[in-house]
Design a binder for these strands. Sequence first.
DNA 1: AACACGAGTTTCGCCTTGCGGAATTATGGG
DNA 2: CCCATAATTCCGCAAGGCGAAACTCGTGTT
Lengths: 263, 263
Amino acid sequence: MAKKSDNPYVVQPVMKALKVLELVARHGHEIALTAVSKELRIPKTTTFRYLQTLTAAGFLDHNRTTDRYNLGPQLRAIARADASVSKVRELARPAMIELMHEFNETVNLAVKGNGTIVYIDLVEANRSLRMQARIGDSHPMHSTALGKAILAFLPEAERQRQLDLPLTERTGRTLLEREEIERQLRQVKRVGYATELGENEDGAMCIGVPVFDEDGYPVAALSISAPLMRMPHSLAAKAGVRLREVAAGISTRLGSPPPTTAG
Amino acid sequence: MAKKSDNPYVVQPVMKALKVLELVARHGHEIALTAVSKELRIPKTTTFRYLQTLTAAGFLDHNRTTDRYNLGPQLRAIARADASVSKVRELARPAMIELMHEFNETVNLAVKGNGTIVYIDLVEANRSLRMQARIGDSHPMHSTALGKAILAFLPEAERQRQLDLPLTERTGRTLLEREEIERQLRQVKRVGYATELGENEDGAMCIGVPVFDEDGYPVAALSISAPLMRMPHSLAAKAGVRLREVAAGISTRLGSPPPTTAG
DNA sequence: AACACGAGTTTCGCCTTGCGGAATTATGGG
DNA sequence: CCCATAATTCCGCAAGGCGAAACTCGTGTT
């Protein structure tokens, strides 16, 4: 009675529960326990448990008056987040390639995670010494230009919450003093770009700018990273200005209101 | 060691697998087995199994070159379908209320399911004798005006596939002859609205029109339903024309190309 | 070139815990 | 008020999920 798959690692309860989720989702709207059970040929008790579990996890929503289930907030949130990331990546890619050629350095794109930034795309300069990051890697917010760019433009309450978390020390130069960080963030907000000098990785530096979504929220950041020795102050400033322009273009295309560059 | 929930019906493997799914999704991009395992404090073997299962179900995607996982097509499809349904419902609601007042009959909105139509919204006239349908109910395509409206505008291949399925007989008047159905569908395509007279429920009739998405695909249908006795031919024709107008407006706002009313 | 390390895959046997039939309670239509 | 249908709860069995450990494979190091 080999059923679903030849893959011996498939966990049956999980697989069946996913079928339930799928059925409910594809149904378009509110469906009752018995209907799901009949449709999937899964005993009512088992179906009941899956529906309960999916609901507890927020993937489904249980309407107590009609005793029916439909898609839950969790799934919608995931979908929205994914769509947002996809869109940012798509919009940013051409600009990133252009920037890479312009400065001949690696260009990074990251989104805001929970207390961290997560790299979602990068275009490497071929003369890059070694890879700085990989897609999917996550780094602390306070030790990267990407993170600082986002932090600076976060709503006050959320920024405070972020800075309340323990700040990990990545290198000897990583900023750990709250005072100092907040001073820098104000500076970032003023000039519109963030700089990080060997604070995340020894010998490497980075210039980052935020990308805003339609609500003016900094969902992502764009950066140019380089070995410290290859990026003098003057060039960094130039890069910052260019990044700011490019990011503003992306933000606009994401439906963002005009950037709040002014302090 | 009571963990997640006080709900005794929560199935642990399912719950944990959902956590894995959520983590991968929220990560923004490609994440490796070990990272998931560490983050969630779930043993590597177990995490491995969940990732395999989620992948087999299409909820995740396994990149074999990098050995990392990210969101899969299944989840995106579900999300897209849901967003589409939500949007249709949202756009249609005001028009439905207007139509209800105009004809003082129940107005229905349904989406195309698999071989059926599924009611996703309805606005009942208060003089309605009894409820015709409930949100979430699904009816055959060939026995309802909603279904016929959709069938008529489906791509040829898909329509044939639908009609190949066994046709259930809802009432004595339900159309079962393929010839007859296809003749009616051509007629529907010509006039732009479908009519059903006691074919789905004795004594009830319905007039339905399709709603198109941005690809010109009939994702949903709008209808007015009434007791047979209250809806003479002339009034039905008038309702058909009005529905056609209203649905065209909704289709346009969904990004649909100009309706293919011409035969 | 050999080695050490880390990541993914496979095995294996224990025993948790998921399963589903059946009993029980809630619901709502007639 | 009763009956039909649906949702919950109970319970004992054993299916199958679990995780430690062994194994493989690829990378980077000495």
